[in-house]
Write a protein that binds this DNA or RNA. Structure first.
Length: 422
RNA sequence: GGAGAGAUGGCAGAGUGGUCGAUUGCGGCGGUCUUGAAAACCGUUGUACCGCAAGGUACCAGGGGUUCGAAUCCCUUUCUCUCCGCCA
């Protein structure tokens, strides 16, 4: 969430910048500012009352020690009133802070100045493109048909044992998954990311820390007995490693990578978007996460985007990078670049990565801070990106590389698959 | 799942009603000494909020209670550890 300082000190600017995200903040910002000044006033009065109470208690203690029972009893009568006031003020303060917090979590992050105006996906800017478009015959098959033809993925079996969106990978299909995971992890490690293996299930505090809660409660699978959530991305457990942590500036930037299965309910999606591997409830992804200083975070962002580009290049897929417009960006992001690869049989661009800088928005909730060289404690910037999500990569690989003699595996991947074609 | 023990500052570990934001050790930081380092010695070392400041307030797992006063007593929730059971 945004810091109170930013909101109260730059009211007009915050409202203006929120408008780019299609968020009308005028009223809510006004409420926040009002509640904050109420909060300050309450705090000041409460502190004064508490100070008086503390003093009085000390005096009473001394009187008892000196054996002045009567005077002590007299002083005691004065405390009742103070006590009552402290209780009321405290409750009032709690209620005010709670309300303030409830408002704050409904305000999205401010978009970076370089984020383009726009309503939705159609307004995103193509930043750059690369890779070779394949030349497929008219009767080229979409990946779901190829998966059946070569017995790589059994969607019906997944339906039988779980439900739609939980495919079963088989044979070379399963080996391709494993190869891609290792390929992505090895590349990330070589690029300086520390590999971690996090839990796939997190508690509510972690969901709250990265902003899935309370915002996207309905999008996560929830284990009600233990109040745990299945992770929608490794970003959640990995970023939460740094919750309530004060880092040293010398430790930054922290670079972590993690493979995980990801679980998303995807409530409300439908139609051609969900065909085959295009949208699943369970999928595999390798994530990269960075914790950085505010001064260096945009340099980190560029490095991450360039890194993801090397992956799609090695996989020889046609790709493009989109700079998301204000209306299409996620709630918590300050700037986001999406990577899409072209699936030539479907003739569709498929999103395979999303690289974002959250600036201090996540860090503020996480209480992830660092101590700078001059001993000041301040909020970190957090960034993350997919590097990469598997299913749509597999879809594009199968579709684009189909030949009458089978499906060709890109050279860079062969050492991982152990086979050159399917 | 059953029984027991516990949760205190970066870590270890004292503290059982006021003088405790908290002894001490380790670690960290600064300094003395040294060609440099180590050792030794000296000093320093949590976070948040309010306040222009001086200063004040809160925090000893979370929540509630008793009391003029709670790290300390009571209730409760969560978590951790040990033993037993089950099990990859």
């Amino acid at each position: 969430m945004l810091t109170l300082k930013v909101i109260t000190e730059n009211k007009e600017e915050v409202i203006r910048r929120l408008a780019k995200k299609r968020f009308n903040g005028a009223e809510i910002i006004e409420q926040v500012v009002e509640l904050d000044s109420k909060r300050r006033a309450l705090q000041t009065t409460l502190d004064a009352n508490s100070a008086e109470m503390n003093n009085l208690s000390k005096v009473i203690g001394d009187l008892f020690k000196q054996g002045k029972q009567a005077e002590a009893a007299d002083a005691k009568t004065k405390t009742a009133e103070l006590k009552e006031a402290i209780k009321t003020l405290g409750a009032d303060l709690d209620a005010t802070e709670k309300k303030l917090n409830e408002l704050l979590v409904t305000i999205p992050n401010l978009p970076h100045e370089s984020v383009p105006e726009g309503k939705g996906a159609e307004d995103n800017l193509v930043e750059r493109t690369g890779g070779q478009m394949p030349n497929l015959p008219e009767d080229a098959m979409p990946h779901w048909d190829l998966a059946k033809k070569y017995d790589l993925i059994d969607f019906e079996m997944g339906v039988k044992i779980t439900g739609a969106g939980f495919p079963v990978y088989k044979g070379k299909g399963a080996r391709l998954q494993r190869a891609l995971i290792n390929f992505f992890l090895d590349n990330a490690r070589e690029a300086g990311y520390l590999e971690v293996q996090p839990p796939y299930v997190v508690n509510a505090a972690s969901g709250y820390g990265t902003g899935q809660l309370p915002d996207k409660e309905g999008q996560m699978y929830h284990c009600q007995v233990d109040d745990f959530y299945l992770i929608p991305t490794a970003e959640v457990p990995v970023t939460n490693m740094y919750r309530d942590v004060i880092l040293q500036e010398s430790e930054l930037p922290i670079k972590n990578t993690a493979y995980s299965a990801c679980f998303r309910r995807e409530a409300g999606s439908y139609g051609k978007d969900v065909r085959g591997l295009n949208r699943l409830h369970q999928f595999d992804k390798v994530e990269i996460v960075r914790i950085d200083t505010p001064e260096h975070s945009y340099e980190s962002l560029t490095e991450m985007v360039n890194y993801v580009q090397t992956l799609v290049d090695k996989l020889e897929l046609p790709w493009r990078i989109l700079r998301l417009c204000g209306g299409d960006m996620s709630f918590t992001s300050a700037i986001t670049f999406d990577f899409e690869v072209f699936a030539a049989a479907q003739k569709r661009w498929l999103e395979v990565s999303s690289v974002s800088n959250f600036e201090s928005y996540q860090a503020n909730r996480l209480k992830c801070r660092f101590k700078s060289e001059d001993k000041k404690t301040q909020l970190c910037h957090t960034l993350n990106g997919s590097a990469l999500a598997l299913p749509r990569i597999v879809a594009a690989l199968l579709e684009n590389n189909q030949t009458p003699d089978g499906i060709l595996i890109p050279k860079a991947l062969v050492p991982y698959t152990g086979f050159e074609n399917i």
